[in-house]
Structures are given as C-alpha cells and as structure tokens.
C-alpha cells in the first residue's frame, strides 16, 4: 500500500509531467514545435548567467508567498490575501527604506522587519474576524487585497512622492541589491533576498514540525473540535496562523521593494505574486521543501516563458496555459491517486 507521504511526492511530479506533456500537445496542435518551445523556455531560464540570475530573482518572492499560503493551509485556513499582504510589506519596506538614515546593520533588518510586521498586521485582521466572529477568511482577505492595492497606490502618490508614479529609490543601506551578484550575472536583478527566503523556509519547517505551537496549529488544521476538546485555544491559533502567514507574505513584498525594484510604483493591478503563491503551496504539498521546489519550477516557467515568443514564436499565453494545466492536475490529485491505486490493484 502506498503511504500518504508517497502520494504527496508522486502526485506533484506526475502533475508537472502531465502539464508539460499536455503543453507539448497543445503546441503541436497549434503548429508550434514543442521541442523548440521547451528549449526556448529552458534557455530563457538557464541559458546564461543573466537569465539564471533573473530566475532566482523571480523564485525568491514565490518561495515566501508560497510559504505564506502553505502555513495558513496547514492550520486549515485559505489565505487568499497573500497578494494584499505582499503589497503592505512592499510598501512598508520601501517606506522605511527611503525615510531613514541609519547604518546598514540596523536599517536593512529594520526595513525587512517592517515589511514582515505590515504583512502580519494585514493577516491579523482577517484572522481576528475569523476567530472572534467566524467571518470566513476567504471573503475578508479578497477584499483586503483591494484595500491594500488602492491604499498603497494612494500612499505612494500622496505621501511617498509628490504626485509622481513611483517613490524614489530606497537608501543604499536598506537595499538587498548586490553589485557583485549583479555583475556576476551580467546585471541581472538577483539580490540577497534568496538567502532570506531559504532561511524562512527553514523557520517554517521548524515551527510546524518541531514546536508545540506548530503542533497546535496543525491540530487545529486537522480538526478544530478535537483541538478544542484537547484544551487548545482554536481562536488564538487561527490568529497566530494568519499573522505568521501574513509575515511571510510581507517578506515577499520586501524582496520586491528592497531587492528587485528598490522602489514602489503605482500598480494598475495585482502583482500575482500572492496568487501564484497559492499554486506554489498546492504544488509543494504545503511543506517547506516542497514550496522551495515548486517556487523554483514556477520561477523557471515564468522567466523562461518570456523567451518563448521571441525565440520560438510560441505565445506567452501558452505558457500560462501549461502552468494552469499543472495546477489543474495537482488539484485533481484524487484522479491521479485513483489511477495509481487502480494500477496497483491490477498489478497484484
């Protein structure tokens, strides 16, 4: 008999393969060469140091937003609000980055911490509403996304700049950008954030698997009533889960604000970092290591995809379709599970 852990490993891998194969079939149907297409994708992500740097740059916020979603899901909460929490973190990090003059050893951690706190606060509100009033977190977080988007646009326009479309660049002392990493990768926008992202994955693994708090969070995720009967405070754990989840998301925003861009501009829509985080978490089976691998896959697909239209003539939309198919197959893991079991039985 297959263990459930085995399924957790097999299902994402099979989903990715099925997604890629269906992508190839779709490319064939529309008259594109799938080998050239995937080669362009591969070269666009790993072709040379520049693209590899850009891939890592894209993976960094994905890891954090994936962790945010995964952490909440482990406690049985669907945090759709990662997107908004990313915005708040981005805003807070840039705000601190441009308005203080401090030595780097204080300024940078301060800016990063501000992002985590801002994201955590944005997660705290839906957590509180859920714990105290039973308002469903999905609805609240969706709305909070819009509040975050327009609030940060308004703050950038009126408080952080003089009616301009973007803030000034954050001070050198608050920047995660590194000139030697950039030079090594032909001026890609890779920055030190990936170290933070991997460190945070470690933290998530530690909290969930090695602490009492983590045990309680998971218990609440499995069965609220049983947890309450066992004497745990369900409300407290819900709030805590949302706060930590929001903190991760806020850090993802800091990666953009202090690393990739170094400023915040007025956004005409969502960045999709948070929404893609949902897919990353699903694909990574809500585990820290799984999230890192899934974020890597998503980063590769996103950055590599940009190369497909110019080199192989395959439209970017198709790559979106492939990503969607992968998620589709993950979501229909029941189907894959059933097929595996079926084969297993027949094999006996």
């Amino acid at each position: 008999m297959f263990s459930s852990r085995m399924f957790n490993i097999l299902v994402p891998i099979i989903s990715v393969l099925l997604g890629l194969i269906s992508g190839a079939i779709i490319m064939l149907i529309f008259g594109y060469n799938p080998i050239a297409g995937f080669a362009a994708l591969w070269n666009g992500a790993f072709g040379d140091a520049y693209f590899f740097g850009e891939t890592i740059r894209q993976v960094t916020p994905y890891i954090l937003s994936g962790l945010a979603v995964a952490f909440a899901l482990r406690s049985g909460l669907l945090n759709i609000g990662v997107e908004g929490q990313v915005f708040m973190g981005w805003l807070a990090s840039v705000w601190v980055g441009i308005s203080f003059e401090l030595p780097m050893i204080i300024h940078l951690p301060f800016a990063i911490l501000a992002a985590a706190v801002a994201g955590a606060f944005w997660g705290f509100i839906p957590g509180l509403l859920k714990a105290k009033l039973g308002v469903h977190e999905v609805i609240v977080t969706i709305m909070m996304n819009y509040i975050a988007l327009y609030l940060s646009n308004s703050i950038v326009r009126n408080l952080l700049s003089d009616g301009a479309d973007r803030t000034e660049n954050v001070a050198e002392t608050a920047s995660l950008q590194s000139s030697w990493l950039a030079e090594m990768t032909f001026y890609s926008r890779i920055h030190y954030g990936f170290i933070i992202a991997i460190f945070m994955a470690l933290i998530m693994w530690f909290i969930i698997n090695r602490t009492t708090t983590g045990f309680e969070l998971r218990a609440v995720g499995f069965n609220q009533h049983a947890s309450r009967y066992a004497g745990m405070s369900v409300g407290k754990n819900i709030i805590l889960a949302m706060v930590i989840s929001g903190g991760f998301a806020g850090l993802a925003g800091a990666m953009e604000g202090l690393g990739t861009f170094g400023f915040m501009s007025i956004k005409s829509g969502f960045t999709n970092i948070g929404f893609d985080g949902i897919a990353v978490a699903l694909l990574g089976a809500n585990t820290a290591i799984g999230v890192i691998l899934a974020a890597f896959l998503f980063g590769v697909l996103k950055i590599g995809a940009l190369n497909m239209p110019t080199v192989a003539g395959v439209p970017t939309e198709l790559v979106e379709i492939i990503i969607a198919l992968i998620i589709f197959f993950v979501a229909s893991s029941y189907m894959i599970r059933w097929v595996i079991l079926r084969f297993k039985k027949e094999g006996k």
Partner: peptide
Amino acid sequence: AQSESDADYATNLNRL
C-alpha cells in the same frame, strides 16, 4: 517582447 508584469520590463529589455 510582451511584458506580463512590471518585473518583466528589465528582463525583456535585457533579453533584446
């Protein structure tokens, strides 16, 4: 080269 998000501008310029 089409950009899907703000983050793609620099990547696309660089690629070209």
